[in-house]
Amino acid sequence: MSEIVAELKKVDKNYGKIKALKNLNLKVYKGEVIALLGPNGAGKTTAINLLLGLLRPNNGQVRVFGQDPKNANNRNRTGVMLQIPGIPETLKVREHIKLFSSYYPKPMSLPAVLAATGLESLENRLYGKLSGGQKQRLHLALALCGDPDLLFLDEPTTGLDVTSRRALWEQVRKITKSGKTVVLTTHYIEEAESLADKVVLIKQGEIIAEGSPSEIKAITAATKIRLITKIAHQDIKAMPAVRSVSYNGVATEILASKAEGVVLELLQTDKSIHGLEVRTAGLEDAFLALTQKKVA
């Protein structure tokens, strides 16, 4: 129904023998904020670089605004925040923005860009003198200054402390409200949840789930139970809510969607249980569980 802004069709991308993306299909609709969520090395940045025309797929098709991503007019309508170590240190915030703005046919005004990214008081500071969070905000400003219809944000908050991360989310949220289409990559589930309308889970070059942030949260939400027990693994696996069971050489590790029932049953079955630990599972664990489930 809605217009497709960017699309990967059956895309394979290999780096030598490493298969970064495997038969990947992705559709980005106009006005949506889509988050590609996955651990490091999942292929998120590769997907972005393909959509930017910085990489070519080995197989399949890449389309942005219905055209080849290298099309000059596409670039006029696209803004990018890449994961890069930096930009020249001896130019001022204002100078970097003015230079980048000049590349676009209908750029935002300098004051508007500064206001949108909270850089008003820093416009005369050299890039080299900015803090990590301020640098990321300038990278965001460069993505935004051309007033693009489509915005790519590749891991916008990686390496930032919690405060700077939340501040940047606030800036991004303001931008997404303006109706721009945004493709975001992240390995923070809270980031995807806080910013996106739709979340696509990627692992080892494949999409393993997609849905609204709350749906994805429900899939990935899990508890990790760690304990030393005599109960056989297949018996644990048979318990309701248990997703996976493993042994790490010292203790048994259980991934469960809800911990309470499982813990109760374990304690009733084996009185000798000790070393019990219960905590929220990280994204990595949740991913592991999801992929194992798919294989099984």
Partner: peptide
């Protein structure tokens, strides 16, 4: 050095 920084990549993704 600008290749190393990634500034070049950012510019190549822009309409410059």
């Amino acid at each position: 050095s600008e290749r190393g920084q990634g500034w070049m990549r950012l510019k190549r993704a822009s309409p410059m």
